[in-house]
Design a protein around this nucleic acid. Structure first.
Length: 198
DNA sequence: GGTGTGATCGTA
DNA sequence: ACGATCACACCA
């Protein structure tokens, strides 16, 4: 039996939350059916102390969800064409904290994902990247701020623990000097659905 | 398998 | 201008 994560689970800093989300199920219950992926790759982002974060320069209308209560989604638009989804964690005293969902292994609703992602030639391409995952789930501006604790979107624990020794690296798309300072990317080592390395 | 490049637009 | 990216062309 899968148990939905409660608000208490999200009430920790993104650095602590990120690796705990590995192997959890990200689920969307839709009228047409149920979508589910096993989370295999994540990145932690923080606020004022994280130059790589959208929240580094403070709160704006775009990143407001990142400052909100934990257990919701922060969905942003980038590169003029892509949406990406974060899980909001608990920041310190008015600061932001979130975990970017970078890749998932599809486990349910594959047909709906394929129809939303006609460019994906193989099933391993359906959710192997943050914008791919968001597209497969149909996440966009409408999902920004959506609750993961109530409603159709949620994260579930079906009894598979996070890896005892997860893979770890610097965050993708950021470089030392371009905001990257630490190794805040975690992934399920060896899983073919992890996004391609740079 | 790999690398290189164009697309496209909200935000600062 | 540039970005928490992707898809496709091309080469091997």
């Amino acid at each position: 039996m899968a148990r939905r994560l409660t608000r208490a689970f999200y009430a920790r800093d993104s650095l602590e939350l990120a690796p705990l989300l590995l192997n959890k199920l990200f689920v969307a219950d839709e009228p047409e059916g149920r979508l589910a992926v096993r989370i295999v790759e994540v990145e932690a982002y923080r606020g004022s102390a994280d130059p790589g974060s959208h929240a580094f320069r403070g709160q704006t209308p775009r990143n407001a969800s990142m400052f909100g209560p934990p257990g919701r989604l922060y969905v942003y638009f980038t590169y003029g064409m892509h949406w990406c989804a974060n899980v909001v964690a608990l920041g310190e005293a008015g600061d932001a904290s979130a975990v970017l969902l970078r890749a998932g292994e599809p486990v349910e609703g594959l047909d709906a994902m394929r129809s939303r992602r006609p460019a994906a030639r193989r099933d391993r391409d359906l959710c192997s990247g943050p914008a791919r995952l968001a597209q497969a789930f149909g996440l966009n501006r409408d999902a920004d701020g959506a609750s993961l604790v109530r409603g159709g979107l949620g994260i579930y624990d079906d009894g598979i623990a996070p890896p005892r020794r997860p893979g770890r690296s610097a965050r993708i798309g950021l470089a030392p000097g371009k905001g990257e300072t630490s190794r805040w990317r975690w992934f399920v080592a060896g899983n073919p659905h992890v996004s391609a390395a740079r």
